[in-house]
Every structure is written in structure tokens, then in C-alpha cells.
Amino acid sequence: MSDPASITRRLLLIVPVLAVVLAAAMLVGASFGSSGVSMSELFRFMRGQGGDSVAATIIWEIRFPRVILAAVTGATLALGGLVFQALLRNPLAEPYILGVSGGSAIGAIIALLAGLAPFPGMAMAAFAGSMLVLGLVLLLGTGRSRSRRESLLLGGVMVNALCGAIIMFLISLARNTQVQHVLFWLMGDFSMFSREQLPLLLAVAPSFVVIYFLARPMNLLLLGRENAAAMGIDVRTVSNLLLIATTFMVSVVVCHSGLIGFVGLVVPHILRLVVGPDHRLLAPASILGGASYMILCDLLARSLPTGGEMPVGIVTALVGAPLFIFLLWRGNR
């Protein structure tokens, strides 16, 4: 039998390839926009010959922060989807579908209406909201009557609907000037982001680290909680750490970029086809792949010929929802 490449060797192949993809996506993302600053100007700017200060300002103040936000959001949501899929042993689990994003949106909107800053006020409120929703969904998922897989999804859908109603209720309370902002944000919006907010995105980093450390235990969780325990995994500790880390990082990005669905479904699904089910490969691949994917979705949202600018959440849903339906259909055959 031929010796299949070890994890380390495969990692050293996959990570650089996806890093190049991400770098390319970032370059394209930063060189495209309504003001027409081109790729060549971007390269001049990067070589430090940016004589044209208007172009430099546009790249540095508007596009660069936006690309970074898209990258961090995509990475977080893809990784979040991956973790939920492992924890629930369900390839259809994802922060948005489970209602976790909706819960954090409720928290964030309440904080927004109360006039709190994105960080830490909104993030903490969002975290509290998403933990609450997650608890509710998991509780619904433990019912006996149906298979866990269906009841969990059904629970997520119902909780999501409830979140939607609460969000609409909150919007009806909002002042006119806030409504447009909140509505855009709900559909996923990168346009309100400013360079000063960039450091706040670092708040997701600890979660990334925790999840990467737990990548091998996540492999064993796929075999079921009891089997994982029998193979030496402290299942409760690992699950709790993963849930908290994931919910926290999702809350952080929801505060900045709103509700963006299906990224956590699409990216891990595609990557699983390429690199296999091992989380030691899938976790870093989801981070890099999710970031690239989101930058490209944002690029698409910006470049579609619409009246103004299309919220990126619409693009990700148009791509992701059909895949979700396909997976559900295939799984039920």
C-alpha cells in the first residue's frame, strides 16, 4: 500500500495554495470599485510610489478596510459552520440556519438602538443573544419524536422565524434615521465599515486558536459523543469550548457586517470534497477559503448593475440556499 501523505505534508500543500488564492482575491477586491481605481494604480501604491493621493486614500481608507472585513467575516462564518457541523454531526448546520446569527442580531440591534458602540457594547449584547438562541435550538434538538437531524433543523428554522419577528418589532421601534442603517446591516453590509474599526476584528483571533487546538477532537466527535469519549476525548469540555468560541466569534462579525447566511455551509462543503473530512486540514482551509469566498461575493455584490449597492448577504444566499436545498434533498433520498 502506498504511503498517503501525512497531515503535516498535506497541510504544507493546502495552506500555501489557499493563501495564494486569498492574496489574489484581496488584490482583485482592492483594485475594483465604483471610483475606477485600477489594478496598476494599486500596484504603484503598494510599491510606495503612490503619487496620486486620491487613489491612495480610496484604497487605504475605503477598499482595504472593506476587503479585510469581508475576509475576516468569511473566515469566521466558514469556520463557524465547520464547528457546528462537527458538534451536531450534521453537514447542514450553520450559524445562520441554526438561528445563532439571528440571536446575535437581536442583541446587536438592541445595543444599536440603545446607542452602544460596536465594541464591546454591541458585541457583548450579540454574544448574549446568540448564546440564548443556541441554548434554545439545542434544547429543541434533544426532543425524542424525530431524528435529531431533522428536529435540530426544524428548531433552527422556527427560532430563526422568531428572531426575524423580534428584529422586525425592534425596527418598528427605531427612529427613521436608524431604519435604513439597520435594514442594510440585516442583509449583510460591508459599506459602513471604517479603518478605525479594523483592530476590533482581532477579537476573533482567540476563537480561531481555540478551534484549531481542538481540531483532532473534532474529528473524533464526528464518530458520535460516546465513541469520542471512548477514544479519550473529554466531550463535554471540548463541546463547551467549541460552542463558546464559535458563538463569540460569530457575534463579533455579526456586529460589524450584519447577517450573512450560508457561507458556513458552502465553504466547508466544497473544501470537504477537496481535502477530506479531517479538521486539522479543514479548519485552516475554511479560514482561508471562507475569506476568499466572501471577498469574491462582495466583489460580485458591488459590481452587479443595480441602482445602488447590493447587500452581500443577498449574493451569499443566492449561491448558498440552492446548495442547502440540494444537500437536504440528497440526504433524504
Binding site: 457541523q85 454531526r89 450534521n90 453537514p91 471512548a230 477530506g276
Partner: peptide
């Protein structure tokens, strides 16, 4: 165990 779930098939 009696059963091993196969939702995410490893080699």
C-alpha cells in the same frame, strides 16, 4: 460500539 455513524466518511 454497536454502531459507528457515517455522516462524514473518513478513509
Amino acid at each position: 460500539p454497536q454502531q459507528v455513524p457515517l455522516a462524514f466518511p473518513f478513509t
